[in-house]
């Protein structure tokens, strides 16, 4: 399946036009991830945002699991938006498949899609509040 078709099936992209998703898909890549692999690394400066197509990821801070992200979810958005180091490590709990988007493309799409921006910002705030609470 083409990346754009995979993206169109995800509820979070419901408010995003086909043209915008097409642009996103042009620069996005699908990646197979082996169980145990880490896609983000707490403290590291690294760009991409990940959208989960299949499989589940554990989100870890200081070596402790704090969250899980499953199909249709995303992670890595905090560093893409604030430009800071990763707030957490994302580790595949099983073989998984993700769409990888560069921070620049991600921010461009958010600028063009207010509904998606609202979803992402609300989720980011929820996650940051949880981190504040836990630390």
């Amino acid at each position: 399946m083409a990346v754009v078709e995979d993206l169109e099936q995800l509820p979070i992209f419901a408010g995003v036009g086909r043209d915008q998703l097409g642009t996103l898909a042009k620069y996005a890549e699908e990646q197979q991830v082996a169980a145990g692999a880490r896609l983000t690394h707490e403290g590291a400066y690294e760009g991409p945002v990940y959208i989960v197509l299949d499989g589940w990821f554990a989100i870890e801070r200081d070596g402790r699991a704090i969250d899980t992200i499953g199909p249709g979810g995303f992670f890595g958005e905090i560093a893409a938006i604030d430009g800071g180091p990763r707030t957490a490590t994302g580790r595949a709990l099983q073989d998984a498949r993700v769409v990888v988007i560069s921070p620049r493309q991600f921010n461009d799409v958010l600028d063009d899609a207010p509904d998606l921006r609202a979803i992402v910002m609300a989720e980011m705030e929820r996650r940051l509040a949880k981190i504040d609470q836990g630390d």
């Binding site: 554990a58 699991a65 704090i66 969250d67 899980t68 099983q94």
Partner: peptide
């Protein structure tokens, strides 16, 4: 269905989200 092994401490559902 998927079977997943979730490490201690991880959240699975999130109050208020769909």
């Amino acid at each position: 269905a998927e079977e997943i092994d979730v490490p201690a401490g991880a959240e699975l559902t999130h109050e208020g989200t769909y």
